[in-house]
Amino acid sequence: MTYQHDRDLHLTHSPERGYWHFMLYIEPPAYTGGAINAGQQLDTSASRYAAEWRDRLTPCTPDALHVTLVTPDEAPQLWYPCVYDDPDSPSAVAGDGCLCWQTFRDPITWLPVAVHHYRTVTGNHEHWEHYTYAPLSLPDGEQLTALIIDREADMVWARTDRGTLHILPEKQTAGYSAGYPGSGPAELARMIEKIVASDGYDVTPGTPNQQPAATVFSWTSSHAAAHTQELTLQQLMLLCRTGVVA
């Protein structure tokens, strides 16, 4: 019988044990990645929301999930120290530049985060790029109170009634975007409809493969959606009723 992950595997977070049950996708010897959770790449320097998420991350030792976030050639570098910690590190360049990777976890979802540090010799250019996975739901019992379109980080976020910021749950190949007539805005429109129908409690990805309501899709694909903004649950409800958010 063909394996069906939607039927045979349920990814859950246990507050008592503190981790996600996670499925890996492996094509030896070339590639390892997440099979269900969508991969995310964030520049946290330009977005206040990405910075808020970044600032809660906790350092940790690398494990198998971090390996899925990098290429096979980069995987050994997860264990090499940064030039700031060891100028003779294999990741150091001339004792001052750096091409290291550092590993973290999101303490709320326990999802892995790998951060690539790029620093030129003398430090004229320095950059940190964050790689992680989107969750597949919000924590049990939490209600979405705001959906955030973040153009600076090219992300969509969810804030819950506990004030916690999450990457909007997303599955592989079903990403969100806004401001043009395409599959990303259509997926976002379908997610908005699901959120509104559940009063903010069902924020699971994998919306039905059907056309969203014309009023919602017209907005998500318009210039009105193509800038950073926070939409409250009440505004999302208004959008579904009228096609506008204010």
Rank of each mutant, 00 (worst) to 15 (best):
Y201W: 05
T12Q: 14
L65D: 08
A226S: 14
D140T: 10
I36W: 08
E187R: 11
R48G: 05
Y80C: 12
G97K: 07
S137I: 00
A246P: 02
R105T: 08
Y133N: 01
G34I: 05
T215Y: 03
R162T: 12
C98H: 05
A64C: 01
D55N: 10
V113D: 01
P90S: 15
L9T: 09
I148W: 11
R105K: 11
R56Q: 15
R54W: 08
D73K: 10
R119P: 08
R159F: 07
T68F: 02
E193H: 00
L111E: 12
P76G: 08
A186W: 04
Q234W: 02
L42H: 04
D154C: 14
A94N: 00
E230Y: 08
T71R: 07
H116R: 13
A38P: 05
A197S: 09
R190A: 14
Q210A: 11
S91L: 09
N37F: 06
Y176S: 12
H66E: 00
A213G: 05
M237F: 07
D161P: 10
T160I: 03
E16H: 10
D8S: 12
T122R: 11
Y201P: 00
P112A: 15
A75M: 05
Q143W: 06
A64I: 04
V113I: 08
S47V: 00
V70K: 03
L78W: 03
T207S: 11
D6A: 14
G200R: 06
G182Y: 09
A38G: 11
G97D: 03
H66N: 03
W79N: 10
L238Y: 09
D73H: 15
C60V: 15
L144M: 11
C100D: 12
Y80P: 05
D73P: 01
Y84A: 04
I36V: 13
Y84L: 10
M1R: 07
R54C: 11
D140C: 03
V156P: 00
G18I: 04
Q172S: 14
Y180C: 03
G34C: 11
E170I: 02
A189R: 05
P139I: 03
A214H: 15
V115T: 03
